[in-house]
Design a binder for these strands. Structure first.
Lengths: 152, 152
DNA sequence: TAGCTGGGTCTGTTTTCCGAACGCAAGAGT
DNA sequence: ACTCTTGCGTTCGGAAAACAGACCCAGCTA
């Protein structure tokens, strides 16, 4: 994983944060969500070094976020596709995109648009209350710590 | 920023991904959202090296995500607080948390609960259509590339 | 038979991260 | 008057990643 034990913290934010907070991992996932699947394509679209790419792909595979699927080119090769677990990262990517558009909009305006397939509407990430449905910000939320069940 | 030019890609996902995808940055933000504000507290709660912590804090400050606010202890010190831009990362953190709870739940059950301050309901991140309000997954979304306005 | 292709691996160099030690300024304790 | 403590850094040499680029392999195609 990394030099240190980023993820010793048993916490549902810290665990994914340690995984996704590795250099290239988020970028790699962005590519995946945009449809990239093959080694060569990742390498060109991101200009990442081959050895690191090999590493990151392997990591995502054994985290169960990507899976290798055989395909036949000239001989058998593998492509990398999202598992359910991986696909479920969609809200994270969308939240990232919303924030990026609002606060770090690329200077040259290059981007892509996302629309609801059915109605054509814009796509956005939001935080809401599962009960009353209200849209929430950090200020509307109360945090309660739930102590660990001692295991060791 | 990093060895390479992760963020050459002018893209509203790639830009934030390059920033947040640095070691410790996401963890640091998690702490901030949980209320940590001071150097010493970050250092202990995350077990990060002091030099890297200094770095990351400075980076977040000049990205405009955190700001230094003076306080008086024994002499004047600074704490690190979220700006509006920073606070607006809340959906990203919540999306991360949702995913973490679902797919990487800590073994010992340690965690924290989040509830809507007003009604006590659970908090969740979701992706929806801004027009029709439907909840969306990657499959419901169409991607359209919008080419760059040539600048150079 | 030589060359191309996709997907890696290997190697030596550059960056970054690390822990530990040090600096420093103003109280507080003695 | 002195040492101690606190909070927040900075500075070091060594360890771990990331880097670019060369190399490899197998089966096709020219």
């Amino acid at each position: 994983m990394a030099h240190a034990k980023l993820a010793d913290l048993q916490c549902p934010i810290a665990l994914p944060a340690a995984l996704l907070g590795e250099r290239w991992t988020l970028l790699l996932l962005r590519q995946v969500f945009l449809g990239t699947r093959r080694f060569e394509d990742f390498q060109h679209s991101m200009d990442i070094s081959r050895s690191v790419l090999t590493d990151r792909l392997a990591e995502l595979v054994d985290e169960g976020i990507l899976r290798r699927v055989a395909y036949k080119d000239v001989r058998t090769r593998y492509e990398y596709r999202l598992t359910d677990k991986g696909r479920d990262l969609y809200p994270v990517m969308m939240a990232l995109r919303d924030w990026g558009s609002r606060w770090m909009a690329p200077e040259d305006g290059a981007s892509f648009d996302l629309h609801h397939h059915d109605c054509g509407g814009d796509v956005r990430a939001k935080v809401e209350c599962a009960d009353c449905g209200a849209e929430l910000t950090a200020r509307d939320v109360r945090v309660t710590h739930r102590p660990a069940v001692r295991l060791r």
